[in-house]
Write a protein that binds this DNA or RNA. Sequence first.
RNA 1: AGGCGCGUAGCUCAGUGGGAGAGCGCUACCUUGACAUGGUAGAAGUCGGCGGUUCGAAACCGCCCGUGCCUACCA
Length: 896
Amino acid sequence: MTEKTTPEQTSNKYNLPKAYAFEEVEQRWYEYWMENKTFTAGMAEGKDSFSIVIPPPNVTGVLHIGHALNNTLQDLLTRYHRMKGDNTLWVPGTDHAGIATQNVVERQLATEDKTRHDLGREKFIERVWEWKTDKGGTIINQLKRMGASCDWDRERFTMDEGLSKAVREVFVRLYDDGLIYKGDYIVNWCPRCLTALSDDEVEHDPTKGKLYHLRYPYADGSGEVIVATTRPETMLGDTAVAVHPEDERYKGLEKIGIKIPLSDRVIPVVLDHHVQREFGTGALKVTPAHDRDDYEIGLRHDLERIKIMDDHGIMNEQAEKYAGMDRFACRKQIVKDLEEQGFLDKIEEYDHAVGKCYRCATVVEPTTSKQWFVSVRPLADKAVAAVRDGRINIYPNTWYNTFYAWMDNIRDWCISRQIWWGHRIPAWTCKECGKLMVVREAPTACIVCGNTELDQETDVLDTWFSSALWPFSTLGWPEQTKELETFYPTSVLITSFDILFFWVARMMMMGLHFLDEVPFRDVYLHALVRDKHGKKMSKSTGNVIDPLVTIGQYGTDAFRFTLTAFAAQGREIKMDEERIDGYRRFINKLWNAARFAQMHIKDSDPSIVAAAEKPAELVLPHRWILSRTNATILDVRKALDGYDFNLIASSIYQFTWHEFCDWYVEWIKVDLFSDDETKREQARGVLLCVLENILKMLHPICPFVTEEIWSQLPGERGTIMLEAFPEANPAWPNTEADQSMQLLMDVISATRTIRSEADVHPSVKVHASIICADAAKRDLLHDFNDSLCSMTRSESLSIMDAGTVPDDAGHILTESGVEVFVPLKDLIDVEAELDKLARERKKIEQELKRVQGKLGNAKFLSNAPDAVVEKEKGKQAELENRLAKNEESRERLGKL
RNA sequence: AGGCGCGUAGCUCAGUGGGAGAGCGCUACCUUGACAUGGUAGAAGUCGGCGGUUCGAAACCGCCCGUGCCUACCA
């Protein structure tokens, strides 16, 4: 009688604890990698290069689930290519995020009852740098928690000295090329942030508003025209009324002056094709200084531009008696006054899109001001050409159309921002003669008159200006560095689709213009991560999944595996936390398989894997698992190379759990415990070989658990990170082994099914029988009799001739035509068996009818490929056979 | 208003011209020496609807319904 072992003793026996404890493992291995500099990019001659630049998160940012997805995918590819032996670089860094960062620091100042103006520009910027050093970049540590294998020694910040130099270089060259200009232009103005916003920085929210119909009297008092507006306060800046040139209703109106209500100003009527006759009354009030379209109309008709409010959205002296009022208060007052004086025709409820600042959600005010612009057309053309001729590929390919459409309609890019934190525009104006100088370094004197008193431009550049240079500025440009030579163009850009135009398109433009080469060969656009119902995650809805909390609960590897498994191209990601738990269990499963393997191989020499190099000498299950390993490696590599992330995850999952664990490991237990040394060694060798392959394939997704298991395997082992990624082995594919194994698995499953349906207790040993006409199959079944018995808990498993089985047997005809019988004595439920047979018969007949229909169709026989016809014929024969067997069984049961 | 997707088992999703799949959940049984975070077996789907192309459609085309997103100069 042996004594029962305690769990503690069990643990010691296998070296590994019973359950995978991720916290300690993750921390330990990340420290190891950092200390050993395993993330450092190599630049060896003669090797392929693989490089990614991180989409730099805002320095103010904290890791959200979108970052988690984005960086998991990048790390996955980076680790894959590093294992393939490429010179591999993943450049990390952060973005200075102009408005966002300035807002954070301004809020901090507000708690001290100060504004940035109290400090002055210089002190304020110092303060921002202090904040950056102190509190900025928490996201970097969070990325490390995710396991990101960035080359941290190359971390960059968009306001670094080197990157700032690149910014000035680009600005000056674009200016010299005539691609940057300063102009009076209508921009989106945020009255709270006090800056211009690019079109992309304005979000259009559907808003319930009102449409006011106003009566505009003719100057001579002979009539009136009704115009409609959502912003009646802009009335005071009107400089025309526009109607469509072919609008019969207003024929001749252009000869009449219009008097603005509540004012004495008289404005002209202009004819413009832009006016849509169907909308409202077909007459449009034109406010060129406060509306983008009106601005365009104003240009066409040379209209005056009257600004009626200041930068804060307060009405100015042009607003006459409304001066000093807030724009929205003014709207109310004006409506009231119009109504009292009979100028208000009617008010309609009206839903429309209102532009709001993407940072602070303040309603944006279109207004004119002096701004700097990039002429993007020539740059955009180069980007479009690069995408069209395949120098850049976009994944998923559904984005091509969207990309082209947007590039066709692109407008000049307003790059100046009226804030303090950012790259200050390198332009100086002479106080004496007014000469504008755009130069790389601050000039000491005017190049025209020599005067030394110069004003520097106060605006800074749009944050996206410096990010547009990121793929080359981080590699040392404008210097000609070895890094540029080795790693530019970068291999792939992985980012969320919502910044395709903010950022991705602009990197293309800048890269092509300045380096005459694309910034990246591939662009992979991933989806937004939503909650499990498909809703956007937001703090107010309370459906946010915090990556760090998730990591704490399930471990980084499980989280990364989940994100990978969800990342199917062209589909939104609905994140269900239950999936994460499922993948945590997968990792635990692998852990325990390794634990089992370890029990048998821990004292072996690692060279036992050599057994797998000669599959011909191995018994069937080994040949089979090697064949399956090979197929999995091919699937995984293909998925990796095609950015089919979900397939990478599912291939490894399916293979590891349902082929390796469920079948292979179970099958070879007999051999592992066998007295036959050859059997034992073969089993150990192949077991170790396949386990190693699984770990290597899984490493890019789950770096921690694979590293930990790897380190426990026999022999002296370095980091798995630098092992070669598995390659297909020509000796492994084996169709014969696949088919033979399939037959054995069918027999086992059939036996189990019969047992289970008849409620035979697992401890009861049965005497199963098999009927099989095929000689080769009979040999195979004979050879593996022991395994079959052990896997089905059978006392014996005999291969019989037809007609010799007992009548009271449960029966299944397998797919491969082999019949399995399990005598059940009084356990058999005749009614249930007959029911089952009837159902089976119905299915067979249905299928047979379909197949016969096809084969009876002359068109099918002549049009379908031969292989398909042959297949259908084989199917027909098989089905007919099955039908006959089914009939036999019914007769047999009928005797009971 | 245009454009782009999506609609497959209760849920989350693969599949994409030649026999309907996975995970979770559900049901039954089982602590068999890696794992109960497990095992075995099972139930469950007019592949959104209607037409069309084809020898053959879940897949390709058209229309419709539902749903999501993007873009826009609807004052």
